[in-house]
Nucleic acid binder design. Structure first.
Length: 557
RNA sequence: UGGGGGAUCGUCUAGUGGUAGGACAGCGGACUCUGACUCCGCCAGCCUAGGUUCGAAUCCUAGUCCCCCAGCCA
């Protein structure tokens, strides 16, 4: 009976395969995943992949997904980021219900487990400083050497560790390390750090602690505490897995999660490194984390990208273990696809060129009917004003057009959408030779846009009546970076696209366009999808994405 | 002779011994009151070399190339 097929079949991916097999073999009885962001920046489209994977997969198997903040480094984390992350995950369309957690919720337990390792002779307090530690760690091809403090008696380790917690030592003075194997080929096993001294205020625990667990010592145990069955992370954590398991093996944890790794998202013309994104904000290359050019979820939201389009994008790119870079066209496609179906059509002229209809009677105007969305009959129609004075797009007129140019030119007839056929009779120029006005005539018989005699016209133009045009600002965006592989030559900031933002301040909108609510997507006919900017005091629109433009592409050739 | 991963159309991704499929991009056409949308068609791939097999993207052997790891970041 299921004859209806989705746009594209949800691709199988290896995570799903593993879960299916685990369910069948009864290794697990249910699925529990987690999305574990560190609150040290805003979420970006790369995180969207992880969010969709974790929340989506849990949903698919009737399980649950926890939102867990990995807040083990108070020197980098802030409440602002925690709040923003919650907002963004919700906006993307996911709900963690009551399962909101923080690694810091487990600090006491983690501390107890650290003592447990010390008592078992599997962890020790090291007095080496960072430089010495690095020097003794060895290299990729040479084994490390044991620290002289490695064989401290248990009692001394315990005493020192407790004094670390008590705040007796300054930052970096001592550190708790696991006692594993300084000769391991896997660097993560060369006595990794478990706890470091950090006299810093934590967004959640305040001044309660001055020692903080490392990622490695916190992550797997947090998973175990929450009963996570499938702990999905990115590829670079692959060789942390033996350490992840070492902790689970050596600690009395309540459950046995497993870690799986997938390839993070890379997108052409885009940077998805938190470090770089943070720098873009701090150095003022963008207006903030929610600058519409940013690949952050906050930026995309402000840009007008529908969350459903992001989910669809993520679904289409799949999940694998091979590093790859997705073509931006792949990202843009579902945005247009979705917006085409849902966005109301409006007319807006970005670069106005005045048109006077010489044979239009008197100074009056009239109302015409325009369809709100040809893709959606339920969207209805609206009335638009027509009059003697109008604005059309400067780009839609050429005084000396090449043959492929179908739009307005001297002596040529075109259609004004939903209105009349007009013919350009005269070109008015200013002293500098700039075209400032077009004198045209209209054919009253073509009211509504069709000629009773059946004659055709090669172009239909959008336009706005001067009588009730509303002036607005419109921002056009291009890729933030000017090349598909920003930073490939070294300095990533040198690859910033100097024309990523173009602000047009003298745009003319039909009243219905100006009445759009902030965030609501509209299509400015023949131009693209836009949405009113919620943050701007005046009337301003952000271009989400342009319409495909085969004419412009052919011209660029 | 460090450890760990990965290679399938231009890009992303299916395939798990039985006709290499989809999406995006590109190209061509149809339609069109958005040079949009939609529709139709085309182009195009198993890293290399051996081997096993009736049959190999898939199994074996040997290579090649790419990515990650030497934070008291995550």
């Amino acid at each position: 009976m299921a004859t209806e097929t989705p746009i594209a079949e949800a691709g199988n991916n290896f995570v799903r395969d593993i879960i299916r097999a685990d369910l069948e073999s009864k290794r697990v009885t249910g699925v529990v995943t987690r999305f574990p962001p560190e609150p040290n920046g805003y979420l970006h489209i790369g995180h969207a992949k992880s969010i969709c994977l974790n929340f989506g997969t849990a949903q698919e198997f009737g399980g649950r997904c926890h939102l867990r903040f990995d807040d083990t480094n108070p020197t980098k984390e802030e409440q602002e980021y925690i709040d923003a992350i919650e907002t963004d995950v919700r906006w993307l369309g996911f709900d963690w219900g009551k399962h909101l957690y923080y690694a810091s919720d487990y600090f006491e337990q983690l501390y107890a487990w650290a003592e447990h390792l010390i008592e078992a002779g599997k962890a020790y307090v090291d007095d080496l400083n960072p430089d010495q530690m690095r020097e003794m760690r060895g290299t990729l091809t040479e084994p490390g050497r044991n620290s002289p403090f490695r064989d401290r008696p248990v009692a001394e380790n315990l005493d020192l560790f407790r004094r670390m917690r008590a705040g007796e030592f300054p930052n970096g003075a001592r550190i708790l390390r696991a006692k594993i194997d300084m000769a391991a080929g896997n660097m993560n096993l060369r006595d990794p750090a478990l706890y470091r001294i950090l006299h810093a205020e934590h967004p959640r625990t305040g001044g309660a602690w001055c020692i903080y667990p490392t990622y490695d010592f916190a992550h797997g145990q947090s998973d175990a505490i929450e009963g996570i069955t499938h702990s999905v992370c990115t590829l670079e954590f692959e060789d942390h897995r033996p350490l992840y398991e070492w902790f689970l093996d050596n600690l009395p944890v309540p459950s046995r999660p497993r870690q799986y790794e997938f390839a993070r998202l890379n997108l052409g013309y885009t940077v998805l490194s938190k470090r770089v994104l943070t720098e873009l904000v701090r150095k003022g290359h963008v207006s903030g984390w929610d600058d519409p050019r940013m690949p952050t979820l906050a930026g995309l939201r402000r840009r007008g990208v529908p969350p459903a389009a992001l989910r669809e994008f993520v679904r289409r790119i799949g999940v694998a273990r091979a590093n790859s870079t997705v073509d931006v066209a792949m990202y843009e496609h579902p945005i247009r696809e979705l917006l085409n179906k849902s966005a109301l059509r409006r007319m807006a002229v970005l670069r106005p060129l005045k048109v006077v209809i010489e044979n239009y009677p008197g100074d009056g105007t009239e109302e015409l009917e325009a369809v709100n969305n040809p893709e959606d009959a339920t969207a209805g129609s609206r009335s638009i004003r027509f009059g003697r004075e109008l604005y059309v797009e400067r780009d839609d007129f050429m005084e000396d057009p090449p043959k492929q140019f179908f739009r307005l030119a001297p002596g040529r007839e075109v259609r004004l959408r939903y209105a009349y056929f007009i013919t350009c009779r005269e070109v008015v120029k200013d002293a500098a030779g700039q075209v400032v006005e077009l004198r045209c005539t209209y054919d009253p018989a073509t009211r509504g846009g069709n000629a009773p005699d059946g004659r055709k016209v090669k172009a239909t133009l959008h336009w706005v009546a001067a009588a009730d045009a509303v002036t607005a600002e419109v921002r056009l965006y291009d890729h933030l970076f000017g090349r598909p592989d920003p930073g490939a030559d070294g300095d990533i900031f040198a690859d910033l696209n100097p024309s990523s933002l173009e602000v047009l301040t003298d745009c003319r909108l039909e009243p219905a366009a100006a009445a759009a609510e902030a965030g609501q997507p509209v299509q400015f006919e023949r131009l693209g999808y836009f949405c009113r900017d919620a943050k701007s005091p005046g009337l301003a629109f952000n271009r989400t994405i342009g319409l495909r433009d085969s004419f412009a592409k052919a011209q660029a050739g």
